[in-house]
């Protein structure tokens, strides 16, 4: 996708057209959702590496936060894609 979209005006239009297809949007949304979740959970790990939220309660709160934030972002992503 990246190389086609950068290759030429026609390539760019081709990628744009391809992304109109609902199935392509579904795949894109799926992959980006996984990335967003991974990103949010990763940030939580970095926070824990800094020593925050490493207790039992802190860990539990952290994991709930990750799920809530990830779900919100994934829904927003869906709105943006569709």
């Amino acid at each position: 996708m990246l190389s086609t979209s950068l290759s030429s005006e026609a390539g760019f239009e081709q990628v744009k057209a391809c992304l109109q297809n609902p199935f392509a949007k579904l795949v894109l949304w799926g992959v980006l959702s996984a990335l967003l979740y991974h990103l949010v959970a990763g940030i939580r790990h970095l926070v824990m590496d800094a020593g925050v939220g490493e207790s039992l309660e802190g860990g539990r709160l952290g994991s709930k936060l990750v799920i809530v934030i990830a779900v919100v972002l994934i829904v927003l992503l869906g709105v943006w894609i569709w």
Partner: peptide, 9 residues
């Protein structure tokens, strides 16, 4: 636009 996208990269 293509110009902006190509310009970015």
């Amino acid at each position: 636009t293509y110009a902006e996208w190509q310009g970015l990269f």
